[in-house]
Nucleic acid binder design. Structure first.
Lengths: 344, 344
DNA sequence: CCGGAAAATGTTACCGGTAACATTTCAGGG
DNA sequence: CCCTGAAATGTTACCGGTAACATTTTCCGG
């Protein structure tokens, strides 16, 4: 089978299996490209007869429109990208769920990128994402690299930073204050007569903010707070071993502020395994208020963040921007609460 | 401020803030577009002096290449999309982690879509994904809609189906047999003198396959297996309530096959809360072998799937295809094992 | 100082859609 | 039967890059 190279590139291509394009469908039906395009995007503009023929041809060929081309031309991608540190972190699930649902009802699509608690990697990923020209970007946490901040601004893409606060957001923001949480947790434990608390914390930036604020409260009262750090994302096991370490070095601690519910649950299991009563001998407070915390024994007291609300607001802000409305507020602090249960 | 519409569209645009393009950079440096393009993609081809000037201009303007345009032109998007039922399902985390790492080392990017255990939604999402013309698609589970199968084939995009087996994959496949797992779990419990087992299972398709195969083994021995289903993704609480329901209706059960480690952990907590000893009075076996299972008390026996291996193989297959090599194998059954711990 | 190969850069024509404006078709009133 | 405006369809020119091939520069030995 000799392949005779012809001059016309279109012809050369067709030798190989090629995915059908608008032009192919148009030629088959006997109309022009724009008519097929309209059949897909604004079907009301076509006569029923033409519409029917075009749809039949599309179905027959298994044609799928090339959104790269469409987006390039129309300057709208109908795509929103969200970046999260970790897929597994159940924290962000509710947020993503809400975002996806809201976007979907507006005909937008959500894709998620995993950054992995690593700034350099986040920057690289973000750059690649900007290149795809999504109609919106949702970030977990705030962006620190000046370079990336500039690129985001230059790209003119609506951005929502989330899960944190900063006086100078790139664009929009839905978050809450991590130091405020550390402070509130400390006061919560202090009020319940905790005098020798400790911290088990993931080593990511936001968790550290909470831990530092917690320590600061006790430091002001002249108590030093021992800290154990574990690499994020923290599995339950780190909570067990973390508590074990703390008890070895500081056998008299009477409370633990855990930087995640995973850690808290691990600490709980370790305490029970050692016959330490919770909350009598040891108070445990988690962060995130995951559903499984309620099902622990005793149920876990935890800092509650309304992740779904973050998602809903972020999506609404983006969609408002997409429809050209000026956003009511560019920055929202959704706050937090402490879900008081039996463990502290 | 009267805006005088000029004839040239480029000029009209520039009234509004516009994101810089290759042409802008090129004009600024005094070269042509292709030279700038080369500075980004094949810098070796340029003289050091030119390269330096171009890079300076790029940095100054905060330019980010429009990958839509690049992909459209070159017919390569350097993008792989993976679809998972749920972001939170820790099961797929290891897989995604591996995929992302392998792809990254080849200069590819991974974006994740969430389908939500819903076939209709998966189809819609998949169609939108095909439209973005990624260089590869990784699916969790196998595709059932004939329509979508045709579109995937027509689009000529390499596809890897995972976490399941089928005699007729669309393209490539890395998975294992769910019925085999149900069978193995049943035999495992039977061998340990379990005669009145029950099942707590998520209601997704693959979990049902496992449950049915489990029941079939016992049915062959004339034992009926009671089943409680919970909507996926299953939180720990469903394990607690699931076991409670089972014990109410069948107080004499002596083993539970749980469709996820979450469910198993919940069942474990419920059993302990009721003073039922595990494994003496009740054997519990999970599925997924999540890290937290090891840290439970007693440690959880669980069906182990090497999710990381699935990710690694899927990524390797895609990259091999991208570099034009014919894949060694198009279908891989990676099997499973039962991680034997104290709970069963 | 010249020829010629290699290195550096440029030209042209697309990729597959959509926007904006132009043209044709058709129904109904005068 | 013509006119008119709305409905249906077409034309042209892009969107912002890259492939393929063409041309100019540079560098080197003879």
């Amino acid at each position: 089978m000799v392949k005779k190279p012809s001059k016309k590139p279109a012809e050369r291509r067709s030798a190989i299996a090629k995915t059908p394009t608008l032009a192919d469908i148009a030629a088959e039906v006997g109309v022009t490209k724009i008519t097929v395009s309209r059949a897909l995007n604004t079907p009301d503009q076509l006569s029923p007869a033409t519409l029917e023929k075009v749809r039949a041809a599309i179905k027959r060929s298994g044609y799928t429109p090339n959104l790269l081309a469409g987006s390039l031309s129309s300057n709208r991608s109908k795509l929103v990208v969200a970046l999260v540190p970790s897929i597994s972190g159940a924290m962000f699930t509710a947020t993503m769920q809400q975002v996806a649902e809201h976007l979907q009802s507006h005909g937008y699509q959500l894709l998620i990128g995993q950054t992995g608690y690593d700034d350099a990697r986040e920057d690289a990923l973000l750059e690649a994402v900007i290149g795809r020209r999504p109609d919106g970007i949702i970030l977990t946490g705030i962006v620190h690299s000046a370079q990336v901040r500039q690129k985001l601004r230059a790209a003119c893409i609506p951005v929502v930073e989330t899960w944190d606060l900063t006086p100078k957001p790139i664009d929009m923001l839905v978050g809450f204050s991590h130091p405020a949480i550390g402070k509130a947790a400390a006061e919560y434990l202090y009020k319940r007569d905790c005098r020798r608390p400790a911290i088990i914390s993931p080593d990511d930036r936001r968790a550290k903010l909470r831990a530092e604020a917690f320590s600061a409260v006790y430091a002001a009262k002249k108590y030093a707070v021992p800290v154990v750090e574990a690499p994020a994302p923290t599995p339950m096991g780190d909570g067990r071993s973390g508590l074990a370490t703390l008890l070895r070095d500081h056998p008299d601690i009477d409370g633990v502020f855990c930087g995640s519910d995973n850690l808290a649950l691990g600490a709980l299991i370790e305490a029970k395994a050692r016959g330490i009563t919770v909350p009598q001998q040891l108070k445990i407070i988690g962060y995130g208020d995951q559903s499984y915390g309620k099902d622990a024994d005793p149920p876990l007291t935890s800092v509650r963040i309304d992740g779904a609300a973050i998602g809903r607001l972020a999506a609404e802000m983006l969609m408002a921007r997409a429809t050209g409305q000026p956003p009511r507020k560019k920055v929202v602090d959704i706050g937090f609460s402490i879900a008081e249960r039996a463990s502290a």
